[in-house]
Design a protein around this nucleic acid. Structure first.
Ligand SMILES: [Zn+2]
Ligand SMILES: [Zn+2]
Ligand SMILES: [Zn+2]
Ligand SMILES: [Zn+2]
Lengths: 132, 132
DNA sequence: TACACAATGTTATATTATAACAATTAACAC
DNA sequence: GTGTTAATTGTTATAATATAACATTGTGTA
């Protein structure tokens, strides 16, 4: 079987919703908001999320247990992610900085471990919140 | 009141255990293993963990929902953490690399957001697992 | 002493995520 | 088309992670 080209029904429903809300959203919030589309059980959500993360359409914000659509249209690889997170308003944005990603991709652990993936989360105050 | 110098009873019990096991451990595993020390409810564990994280004695491995003792004896700040995680055996080690931490501390978001904290998790195969 | 705050104990509940199994659908080889 | 395989779905139940709420006790300080 060839690599999957198109998303399945549930995967597409979940992705459409995540892209629409355009901010990190939690699995059970997705569940509650997609009842009328036929998404009625946690597993329908988690299965779709798993696949969407795997193919890089969305990312998981680990420190928040939330999911957000990928903004780097060319971020096929879900293997090198970086986010900035406002600790006040919880705004999250995906960092797209080629120097940073190059630096991290090439980072060599002292133990000689070779990495194939990383996730970086920065925390601080966004512009709006830092003037308050 | 002055800044806390000593740990409370439960905090010390939990920290001792985390330092003893010397690998990432989950909250409910701590709970189950410290029953005879009087740790009988999740909150006793989570409160201790919260404080220990706050003062930098332990760190949370976000992608694993696990906690590990800080290895950088001078890592007072729990604000700049980096870990390598083996996706096969789940071995975790804290990265202590001054160039890396300097680079990340000084990283400037394009949006001008100033960060006061970050967490970085690298994933790959440890030496042992990569020869298998 | 009185006060403020940190820490504890306890019960209940909220939130996040997976197990297990049956049924259905899609892609491919022939 | 048929048969085969893998992906996807549906469903119920349960596991794993984490917090709310409130009463109580301990600890440092004035
Ligand atoms: Zn992305
Ligand atoms: Zn903000
Ligand atoms: Zn540390
Ligand atoms: Zn390993």
């Amino acid at each position: 079987m060839l690599k999957q080209e198109t998303l399945s029904k549930n995967q597409q429903i979940v992705l459409d919703y995540i892209e629409k809300v355009n901010e990190p959203i939690k699995a059970y919030s997705i569940l509650h908001n997609l009842q009328k589309k036929g998404i009625k059980a946690p597993l329908q959500v988690y299965r779709a999320l798993d696949k969407l993360v795997e193919i890089g359409k969305i990312h998981k914000i680990e420190s928040r247990n939330a999911f957000v659509a990928c903004k780097n249209s060319n971020c096929q690889i879900s293997k090198a992610t970086a986010f900035s997170i406002c600790e006040s308003c919880e705004e999250v944005s995906e960092i797209s900085d080629s120097k940073l990603s190059k630096y991290l991709k090439n980072f060599q652990d002292k133990a000689g471990m070779k990495f194939n993936k990383y996730n970086l989360e920065f925390f601080g105050l966004c512009k709006k919140c830092s003037v308050k």
